[in-house]
Nucleic acid binder design. Structure first.
Lengths: 209, 209
DNA sequence: GTCTCGGTCATACGATCGTTTGATTCAAAC
DNA sequence: GTTTGAATCAAACGATCGTATGACCGAGAC
């Protein structure tokens, strides 16, 4: 196989540690130690610790973005008015698929996304760009067609609900495990549960005012 | 009015800053400066920075716990089998009510909860106790009665979905504002939208296996 | 008056942080 | 063989971190 590229190893280590300990909770030294690289490697390859963060985030986000766009294009090529369930699948599905690559059952990426979403710090917020805005607007329009009675505000609330459920999915909310089984059910199940859950939620009639 | 108690002011400042910058992103000096107190006040009143965190978390969590338990008791006093919508209201409602006290539209508390939920660090996890376990188990049982076809695993997934939606509610996921209005709709609306959203989601038929 | 003590104060300690620097390595270019 | 430049290295910089210390204050007890 290819020789272990230092830059990539630093990126991998940073992704893992940022997810586990957060941005400020992770020292550059911890990253380079885990990566087996020198302390100065971060400055050399990424400019700064913040530069490393955006590189990590972009590497996680971009495949998800691409899959969301491709899924919507595929639906719109078939019909100008895709049903809600299909839209939920196209939007939420990639959020789960993007989590299975590499880390332990997606928990790591899930945690990273929760941190990104919940952190108001400047460094954490500058990753959003025109790509994310485009995706958001296109899905808003599509959902708006499928749910004609819904006000834009409530629709936007619901789309953020999708993100919330997908993001928090794999993080353990309580210390103890799920009451029934030993592990919070890895594999395909959560993805399908989420589609069921979110499709029903999105299809709910508008809240009467 | 009562004289500004130092301990309370430190608690208030810490709650605000922990929510805005996270636990590790907030220095003890920043807290005491905002509180107008001396640096050593944290060590004196709370033992350590971690002790201050648990005090902050407990102050936020406990009223929510009490309201969730009281709501469930009230429902069970009326009928042994409360409908799903009522259970959702009793469980999720306090998560929203607990957010309106004091901070700007709940965004601050919402962020704090997201941080608590998403952080796997030891200091962040030791707040869960028997009270939280009891609440979880009692609601699981009640939802289990109301949704007889659902597997325990999928039911547990859905309950975590409630927490996810309530927690992420007020945090801005993208930089830009909601597409329609200037502000992400403050006041009572999000709470009612969430009940609609989550009641429909919880009532969805089991995912076919 | 003096003692007591919960509370607050300025100050300092050692550790760790992100970043920078200048030397060193090493394979490809000439 | 020499030069070049990307990459890595050990070492150090000043800043900031959490915590501990001992002096100080002031109101009530005696």
């Amino acid at each position: 196989m290819a020789p272990p590229d230092t830059r990539t190893q630093v990126l991998d280590a940073a992704e893992r540690l940022f997810a586990e300990r957060g941005f400020r909770g992770t020292s550059v030294r911890a990253i380079t130690d885990l990566a087996g690289a020198n302390l100065a490697a971060v400055g050399y390859h990424f400019g700064s610790k913040a530069g490393l963060l955006t590189a990590v985030v972009r590497r996680v986000i971009e495949p998800i973005n691409a899959a969301q766009l491709a899924g919507l294009d595929r639906l719109l090529a078939r019909t100008p008015d895709p049903p809600v369930t299909d839209l939920v699948e196209a939007f939420a599905g990639p959020l789960f698929d993007g989590m299975r690559a590499g880390d332990e059952g997606g928990a790591r990426t899930s945690r990273l996304i929760v941190r990104i979403i919940g952190d108001p710090a400047e460094e954490m917020r500058l990753w959003t760009g025109p790509a994310e805005d485009t995706i958001r607007d296109r899905y808003l329009a599509a959902f708006g067609h499928a749910l004609p009675g819904l006000s834009p505000e409530e629709l936007w609330f619901r789309m953020r609900g999708i993100l919330a459920v997908a993001a928090v999915d794999r993080v353990e909310v309580y210390n103890q495990r799920t009451p029934a089984g030993p592990s919070p059910s890895a594999g395909e199940a959560p993805r399908r549960w989420a589609i069921t859950f979110l499709a029903a939620a999105m299809s709910a009639p508008p809240t009467r005012t």
